[in-house]
Nucleic acid binder design. Structure first.
Length: 463
RNA sequence: GGCCCCAUCGUCUAGAGGCCCAGGACAUCACCCUCUCAAGGUGGAGACACGGGUUCGAAUCCCGUUGGGGCUGCCA
């Protein structure tokens, strides 16, 4: 009898969606796909004070952008309060839970007198309090040990004596995380719970709940946390690691997915660049590493450059449109599109991030990026190069990249100068920059008239 | 403090007792190629935290130490 494979990603919408959550979602999705199961999105919004609709929307948009699609959901915990309450009452009626009216202060006070160990002491366990407004419902933790079988950690044993009688229902009757999670995982028939390591300490509580109800626990897997350069867990407040920020910076979703998959997992065999299907085929939870991983944007950029270069040109062009449109000089008319098509392949292999496209091509579409006459700081040699190059190309009617390069090379021979020296002043006068796409392709696009004008203008800097 | 997890180059990792005086990738350095940049090529530097065991043999197994991290909320 095989159990259905059902995995869920259950973020709480209390902030922007960061890369750690994205990786957790990805790993769940990967297993669901690999095993032909379902991937479910559940929004854990039981904390009414901190949840916001916009964060939920952001999570869904980011998952969509990454190509992590879900088969069911989103389900919202905020809509299942009655069910949690009902389940909690069942625990109470079976004598597995009890009401407690201790305040935090009283609990701390007693802990202090006991000798420092913080935590609840079971004060109300045998007081047989009944339900009243303001009373919390606590689970009666039995004696013994609780074992968590974890695919990445192995067997982890907790002494129940170190687990306090935890709260199921708050004084206002609302469910707490452990309860809501448990009920939903049972109701949704979740087979694998894959989440970050920070949840490991609460897992025995969930296991206790499964045991109390005689329900089989799902398979657990706790992933190593993602850390910042200081080696502490990535935080929404401290670290700028929002998925949407990376998207806006011009990262490609396929690059991000590939990089994220490798943060904490490796397929072996020195494999690095894996597409979605390869990821699905090779992914293996038992090979997930146990130690925290540093989220390295520099390395992700390398992945991005690779994926950028592998795009077919039309795809690349399509993805550039968004960043081009943010510039006033871009009209997107036929002429501009034609120019961009010509330069695109040369740009594509040079940039790591999508928005770098702007500085690579702006000179083709606007004069505003060119230097002012007084800003050129040409040497006599530079000026000599420019005027002699002008002479050579002024009479050229076939203004193509090949012809231009021939003139350029012959100029080098004439002057006995290295070509790298020659191109510098030409590029600067033509593009206003020291680096850029191949010069003669650029000139071909600019055309004879504009090219000559720009060089003449630069030469005019001589006084 | 308590409970739990973790520990290979700066970073991500390969390594599941001999194939490892430890391999790959990013970053870094040098050189080559080259109209700039990028790409590519070649080469360099760079790690098994420490101490005990077990074993003919340990990065790999066990114990301890140290270090780091997570949790410790009527947050998730």
């Amino acid at each position: 009898m095989t159990q259905e494979i059902r995995l869920r990603f259950a973020p709480s919408p209390t902030g922007y969606f960061h890369v750690g959550g994205a990786r957790t979602a990805l790993y769940n999705w990967l297993i669901a796909k690999k095993q032909g199961g379902s991937f479910i999105l559940r929004i854990d919004d039981t904390d009414e004070l901190r949840n916001r609709q916009e964060w939920t929307d952001g999570i869904i948009a980011a998952l969509d952008w990454l190509g992590i699609d879900f088969d069911e959901g989103p389900y919202f915990q905020s809509q299942r309060k009655d069910r949690y309450f009902q389940q909690a009452r069942e625990f109470y009626e079976k004598g597995l839970a009890y009401y407690c009216n201790c305040t935090r202060d009283q609990i701390d006070e007693r802990a202090k007198m006991r000798g420092g160990q913080p935590g609840y002491d079971g004060f109300c366990r045998d007081r047989a309090l009944s339900s009243e407004p303001g009373y919390a419902l606590r689970f009666k933790v039995p004696p013994g040990d609780t074992v968590v079988n974890d695919v990445v950690r192995g067997t982890v044993t907790f002494a129940n004596s170190t687990i306090e009688d935890f709260i199921l229902l708050k004084g206002n009757g609302a469910a707490l995380y452990v309860l809501a999670n448990f009920v939903d995982d049972v109701d949704l028939k979740i087979s694998h719970v894959i989440r970050a390591e920070e949840h490991l300490p609460t897992t025995p509580k969930a296991v206790l709940l499964y045991e109390a109800l005689g329900v089989q626990s799902p398979i657990f897997a706790h992933l190593p946390v993602l850390v910042n350069e200081k080696r502490v867990k990535l935080s929404k407040r401290r670290d700028r690691v929002a998925v949407e920020d990376f998207r806006d910076q011009g990262f490609l979703p396929e690059a991000m997915v590939n990089y994220l998959a490798l943060l904490g997992w490796s397929p072996g065999d020195d494999l690095e660049f894996l597409d979605r299907q390869e990821l699905i085929d090779l992914f293996d939870l038992s090979k997930v590493s146990k130690s925290p991983a540093f989220f390295d944007v520099v390395k992700m950029k390398h992945f991005n450059k690779h994926y950028m270069a592998s795009l077919n040109v039309n795809d690349f062009i399509g993805r550039c449109l968004g960043v081009l449109e943010a510039n006033s000089w871009w009209t997107g008319d036929e002429s501009q599109m034609a120019s961009f098509h010509v330069i695109a392949p040369f740009v594509q292999e040079r940039i790591a991030l999508l928005d770098e496209v702007v500085e690579m091509v702006d000179f083709l579409f606007t004069d505003s990026v060119l230097l002012e006459v007084e800003q050129y700081n040409f040497s006599d040699i530079d000026l000599d190069v420019l005027s002699k190059f002008l002479v050579k190309i002024e009479g050229e009617d076939n203004f193509t990249r090949d012809r231009l390069e021939e003139h350029f090379r012959s100029l080098g021979e004439d002057l006995g100068l290295a070509l790298r020296k020659l191109q510098a002043p030409i590029r600067l006068s033509l593009t206003g920059k020291k680096v850029g796409p191949p010069l003669f392709v650029a000139m071909e696009i600019l055309g004879k008239e504009r090219s000559l004008n720009r060089i003449r203008n630069a030469v005019a800097s001589r006084h």
